[in-house]
Design a protein around this nucleic acid. Structure first.
Lengths: 191, 191, 191, 191
DNA sequence: AATGAATGAGGATTCATTCAT
DNA sequence: TATGAATGAATCCTCATTCAT
């Protein structure tokens, strides 16, 4: 019998990888980083422990892949035409979409918040995160500058603190949080 | 020398307990929750591993004691005369003080944020935290109601998200964060 | 193209087998026995892991094949006309050639020395090695007997210890070892 | 009850440490480096796996402690008055004693030879070994120089190769090796 | 003949906790 | 009260080997 074609292999690898990442995110969010073991992830993903290491060379790599993927998905919503300029429609769109993402990907945000405070882990994405945040910061500040806001940097700090604070509170108690109302208020006040 | 009185003994116990807690907080913030071991804490506190268990019956108990103590210290600043009514002076005072605390107790807040997201840990103070938060929430909503704010609950959610978001960002990068400016803006907009 | 004849197939098999063995030896010497994995050998030999097992039924077999091949190559230099009698010219020739081999096949000797001391591995060729050594021993003792050496067995033990000792030292530090000088001295003293 | 005195602790630690090292040497020699697991060593030493790490911070450290200890014991026999000059009595004494050690500590030599060829392991003592060997080499060369030997360095290389070669052969087949006869011959020819 | 995904047993190591002293 | 030796379960990770394709 001939060996699998490289397309077949590619597909197998891609699917498995995705399924491991999905399961891992679920388990990480459920148990917290400290208590989510490769063992449990593997079992729940229906995969042997050994195979995990065929796809991710360490627990750290698995983790940082998940986190960076999630962050990218999030920041792609910002300034979607990537022209470096934010219109108020784009800003509204970003807020709308990010709130959708927040409820769709609770697990991811749970993980995100828990990881940011763990020094050992934080180092894994510190650099990459700074890179991702920089254009977000610059463009938002430009936006507020054009709007004539008195202190655009502070305005940026407030809204980004709100994003994180709201996310934080939401994932702690998603059932009861009035996400839509908060979103509306945010758009009114900060766009 | 005469044998120590029981008050002296009590004081020794209390001081030692405090010193273990302080060291533990320091180590937890430095290494992160996952990597802070009882061994390291004991060594740094100048105490034997065995003795740790004389003061705290488990690592979990040590942890939750630290966190609850910190939260109490924080919420005692709120409505300081405990008459159940917040004046705008009291509100301003609270914000001022809480920002002082934030920079004085960075380690605590680092720990606080990292723990809030760890399901296993979260369970330890979930109940107690709800209890602490309830009057804070109620009184703040009353405050906004009296001020005629349109949606007092939402206003409360916004400001508390801001507290956490700002704290979160500050502990991630304390050197560069313009804490005072942010505080002023917060008082302007939310008192 | 016409299908390959069975001789061609045989040659391909033989060449590939040889190439796997060469690579394995290289990897074993580079990483040491404990750290040389089939994976690495396969990758470096440009062959799939699975195919390795088509050529050698286990890692052990690959190992013992390499070692026995090397030993054979070595002992073929001894008493080259295979008449069971060693002349002093033949002895000199053997020493000359074995020193050439030593520097040409450093990797092999490195492996050889490391394996000889590993009980699990040693068992694999213990029997076969005894067989190889026996004529070497017998003929050398005859040689010394004829020369009138007082204790031919001891003389044999000394020179064979020297071969191994020199080899041992040489592979530990091949760059600086004065192999040629040592060789000359050996011939002077022991032929 | 009062805690153990530090002398008691010292003794406990010393004894345990020794017993772990003895067992480890035995197991390492029996299974070979590649197959001797901490698990097996712990079990045979009647100790938990965890405790091993209380005494040696890694498998590597355990190993290198054993090896360096053994080497020290060996080289202490050389030039016993440490005046930097070797008399022929001292040389004879050294050879006598080293042969005694060889048969008394077969396990150690077995380990020694197997390790010297493992690149990863070798690095652990390379430096320290060079340091140990240097005076041995210098003093022996002086000795031969005074005796008027033509090429003292070569003479040194020969005798040290013999030491290792004989040791190598002896540990491979200790029952049948005429250690005493070889020793006598060595003294005759090289002192 | 050839591939590499997949397995699973086994390895080194860590650490909260206990307990004899 | 105080010590730190000792435990053992759990963790991450490696690798020879198998097997569907």
């Amino acid at each position: 019998m001939s060996p699998r074609t490289s397309e077949q292999l590619e597909k197998i690898r891609h699917d498995r990888r995705k399924s491991i990442m999905d399961t891992a995110l679920e388990v990480l969010a459920e148990y917290g980083y400290a208590n989510a073991s490769i063992s449990v992830i593997a079992k729940r993903a229906g995969v042997s422990k050994g195979l995990m290491y065929n796809y991710f060379k360490s627990k750290e790599e698995l983790l940082s892949t998940i986190v960076l993927d999630g962050l990218n998905e999030m920041f792609e919503l910002f300034d979607p035409n990537k022209d470096g300029v934010l219109t108020s429609e784009e800003f509204t769109y970003f807020i709308e979409e990010i709130f959708k993402l927040l409820s769709k990907k609770r697990n991811f945000y749970k993980l995100y918040f828990s990881l940011m405070m763990q020094p050992a882990v934080w180092k894994l994405f510190e650099a990459r995160l700074a890179e991702i945040i920089e254009p977000f910061m610059r463009i938002t500040i430009d936006y507020y500058t054009k709007k004539g806001v008195e202190n655009p940097l502070l305005e940026f700090l407030l809204i980004s603190a709100l994003f994180d604070g709201i996310g934080f509170h939401y994932v702690l108690n998603p059932e009861q949080y009035p996400l839509d109302d908060v979103k509306k208020l945010l758009i009114e006040r900060f766009v």
